[in-house]
Design a protein around this nucleic acid. Structure first.
Lengths: 338, 338
DNA sequence: CTATATATGCTCAGAAAGAGCATTATTGCG
DNA sequence: CGCAATAATGCTCTTTCTGAGCATATATAG
């Protein structure tokens, strides 16, 4: 079992740090974007400099905070992306020579509010601009059954043999909740990857040279594999909500329970049962009622709450209950499936 | 917002792949270990060669399978470790010059059974040799209240001010379940990190030059930060069991429900309620009863089950229920705490 | 045949989760 | 002012999930 202490020089690669800096504003989940090569949106990216940064996290915090003046409350490593071909498009712009391998470590960071960005090349974007099919707050997104699922089924049908086709169908079922489990909001990445493989998103046609054209309604393209990273981040955040009290990294100092609910809904992408949401939040002990209350437009004034900081560290083990409304009616699988 | 397409040459680093290859044999969770420098145990390690491997996962599979002849069923990226100082000990062996930064991407892999290793320098070890306090199957490990907690409390008491001390105490409470939530098996990494910071494990005394001596009963030392990686893997696997049917990567082709239960218990580190475990397994539809049965030593013969493969992909969304027995009586916090 | 050791079947109680009804406060308008 | 509209809050009910434990069935070892 070889254990070389250092890799051959040929094996050196550059490491980049990608940040998905998320925030919720006005019932919209936002992500900080830059304009990459070819005017594509991209995630803010900074090289990791081993000379200056003792850890990745220090590196990420430093350059994000310096460039955006946003104080990162919460930072979490997402995934390390090292697939070949990630940088292919860039290499081709440069002239077709074999591109340097760039490995990037993706981070998820949360900010309480989308601070003004002083850089004209950067802006906060609603993350559903990139994943319109992920927002079910106003019901099932139309492009799902109109465009995406038909496209996926066609792709499944093109498989070389029946076993491969069944395999593709199973992946579609799982990712899009066509089986008894229904739509699982945290499968964001699975959904994007199936769509990518099926050639339904712009990145797919760009990365391969094949002619399958991306469809309308499959969201905005991003540079490199940034949309995949963003999908990973959304899925991770959606999952994390349930078992860690991370929402409070996104809340203002004081908020009503409905505000809190809207923030959660913006992230998970569907509406919650109001009364049950309050019940579980109040029981959790993660928030405390302040004496103040606030009246929004028409309606009984709402009590203002604030985070119960000590409970946050003590009970870091608990997340929020996500009381769904009636399970969205599962799609029926056209042909071949029940 | 700078987005350099390639990092300066100074920023290049070597990437290593570390594998935690886990298996369960004879009611013991095992991990494949090599003997590192200084005869310390280490995790198998291979350099990532961007020329040869299109993805990390391909790289990991290739060299682990080649060297161990174990077919990796399940492979999952764990975390990317890039902290400075990770390789300090090695560098010092080499002569004290500034060590090259090595970033390592840790992977968790599962194998159905610990295949014979043809390499004298490698061996399967019970992972509780490294984390004896994590095995509660025969009740609370003695060294916890005898050695570890006292050590941690002493560390908390040494904090510079009361606020820092309370902070340390909160971390200890959370990691070791001293508060109302009780012991949470998946907090393996938190526990190890607190112990490391408190100087209770051998790695801590080795890495700093300080004189705090590691205590008896705090497990076997590993090279570099491999024990941290292993702790991450154990925690991840323990958590994953609950929401993905990964156990079946560790089972023989056919097994009794008790065998399955023992495998789960080996991983989570505590005993389960037998009847409730069966109930949930049978309801899950993840296994099917075969006609065969088997009689072990004394006792009614047990039905043999096998995995229900189609259900595994379809219902990949569900994990196993972990029906705990009576919550282990929470420790009481000495002094200062209730 | 008896003592033991499991495997299996079932029941019961309490907690958690999903739904929906009823009441209470405010604002905007005739 | 009285009424409609809009939320915020309080509660109840039912269904599931979970934790525990009792009872019965089927082997093996004397």
């Amino acid at each position: 079992m070889a254990r070389p202490l250092s890799a051959p020089a040929s094996a050196r690669v550059a490491i980049g740090l990608n940040a998905v800096l998320a925030s919720v504003e006005d019932q919209r989940p936002k992500v900080l974007c830059a304009r990459g090569p070819g005017r594509l949106f991209s995630l803010p990216y900074g090289p990791f400099d081993p000379e200056r940064h003792r850890t990745f996290e220090i590196g990420i915090r430093e350059w994000v905070e310096r460039q955006t003046h946003v104080n990162l409350g919460y930072v979490e490593q997402l995934y390390t992306f090292g697939d070949k071909g990630r940088e292919a498009p860039a290499a081709e712009l440069v002239g077709g020579e074999a591109s340097d391998r760039v490995v990037s470590v993706g981070y998820l960071a949360l900010a309480a509010e989308p601070a003004a960005i002083d850089d004209a090349t950067a802006a906060w974007r609603d993350w559903y601009d990139f994943f319109p099919w992920e927002d079910w707050r106003r019901g099932e997104p139309a492009m799902l059954s109109a465009v995406i699922l038909p496209g996926l089924f066609a792709w499944a049908a093109q498989a070389r043999d029946e076993s491969a086709a069944e395999n593709r169908r199973a992946r579609i079922r799982l990712a899009f909740g066509l089986d008894r489990d229904g739509w699982e909001e945290e499968r964001t990445l699975d959904r994007f990857e199936v769509m990518y493989e099926a050639g339904l998103v712009a990145e797919a046609t760009r990365d391969r040279k094949t002619a399958s054209r991306p469809l309308e309604g499959t969201g905005l393209e991003m540079a490199s594999d940034h949309r995949r990273i963003l999908a990973t981040a959304i899925g991770r955040l959606r999952g994390k909500l349930k078992y860690r009290p991370v929402v409070f990294e996104l809340t203002p100092p004081t908020f009503t329970l409905l505000t809190l609910q809207r923030i959660v809904e913006a992230i998970v992408g569907f509406e919650l049962h109001k009364q049950n949401f309050r019940r579980s939040i109040e029981q959790s002990g993660l928030v405390v009622r302040t004496k103040a209350s606030i009246q929004q437009t028409g309606g009984r004034p709402a009590a203002l709450f604030r985070v119960n900081r000590p409970a946050l560290t003590d009970r870091a083990g608990k997340g929020l209950a996500i009381p769904r409304l009636r399970q969205a009616p599962a799609f029926t699988f056209p042909g071949a499936e029940a």
